[in-house]
């Protein structure tokens, strides 16, 4: 039984907030460095592979890692963790947000607005833009991610358009349209100039692999089975076979949903500090 069993709700809230405060407003140096380094490495793959310095198979592996890893710095920016509006480093927050997801072909404004809706309506089948990743198990989650990327799919990135229309931000769809036109335009130009295999293995296929990985660890695993609603039940802690780094820090996703402005690198520490409080709250923390 939790040591905090019987503690009043007001006291639990106070204790939880006290811990959260210790982790807020910490500058995420690693996420900022990660954003620029990751993008620079991915961009450098193109000349390295085209000039024969790096073999294509190695470029493919690195590019797949780059695409899978590119979302999280933007995620820190989406929650204003790097710098809040009106502060001196706000430009850096926005720069990281815009640049880091270029390999993923995901515009910052689309990512930010839909992600904030996910936080507001987590696990709501009608209103959570990420609810389409719900699946019965790991293999089903991977298959669902692939199915959500089909042209006629209702879920995945396609459901983001519906979310943007619902919240009155259809204007942001232009960002997505321009990103997609640029992405396909570059792929077509490379393909017809004799570099289709390079384009497929440095961008097209890594993007699919990255999206699958992101859907699996950032959306499916931390919310599974994605049936409960409410801030203490809509997500969980879990044990990933690749560990916390391999799951891109998502083992402690429950802390992120409760306190979205805690930087990713502080969520493990915050989790272990508030675990008993979460247990007393009836949170799903049995795996860790």
């Amino acid at each position: 039984m939790s040591a905090l069993a019987g503690t009043s709700e007001a006291e639990l809230i106070r204790l939880e907030r006290e811990i959260a405060r210790q982790h807020l407003d910490k500058f995420p140096y690693f996420a900022v460095a990660w954003a620029f380094t990751n993008l620079a490495v991915w961009l450098s793959l193109w000349p390295l592979v085209f000039t024969g310095i790096l073999p294509l198979w190695a470029g493919f592996l690195i590019a797949s890692f780059n695409v899978a890893a590119c979302y999280l710095p933007s995620h820190e920016a989406q929650h204003d963790i790097i710098a809040r509006p009106g502060t001196k480093l706000r430009w850096l927050n926005q720069l990281v947000g815009h640049l880091s997801t270029i390999p993923l072909v995901l515009p910052y404004r689309v990512a930010r607005l839909t992600h904030l809706e996910h936080h507001t309506h987590a696990n709501d089948p009608a209103l959570d833009p990420d609810h389409s990743t719900q699946a019965s198990g790991p293999l089903h989650a991977i298959w669902t991610s692939i199915q959500n990327r089909q042209p006629g799919a209702k879920g995945g990135l396609n459901s983001y358009a519906e979310t943007l229309k619902r919240i009155g931000r259809a204007d942001v769809l232009l960002d997505a349209a321009l990103y997609n036109l640029a992405f396909y335009g570059i792929l077509f130009a490379l393909a017809w100039s004799g570099h289709a295999i390079e384009a497929a293995l440095l961008w097209w296929l890594p993007r699919h692999i990255g999206l699958t990985y992101i859907h699996y660890y950032l959306s499916w695993a931390p919310h599974h089975p994605a049936t409960d609603k409410g801030r203490y039940r809509d997500t969980r802690s879990f044990r990933a076979i690749f560990g916390n780094i391999g799951s891109m820090g998502m083992q402690y996703h429950i802390v992120h949903h409760l306190h979205p402005r805690i930087p990713l690198y502080r969520t493990p520490r915050a989790y272990w500090q508030m675990r008993e409080i979460l247990e007393a709250r009836g949170c799903r923390v049995d795996e860790l």
Binding site: P151, A177, L178, L181, Y184, F188, A191, A196
Partner: peptide, 25 residues
């Protein structure tokens, strides 16, 4: 026009990307 191009993207992608990709493979 942008909307039209994106609507027909599967067909355009088949000819614009898959065709040269298959040929080069």
């Amino acid at each position: 026009l942008v909307g039209l191009v994106l609507h027909y993207m599967p067909l355009i992608f088949g000819i614009g990307f898959l065709a040269p990709l298959i040929a080069q493979l």
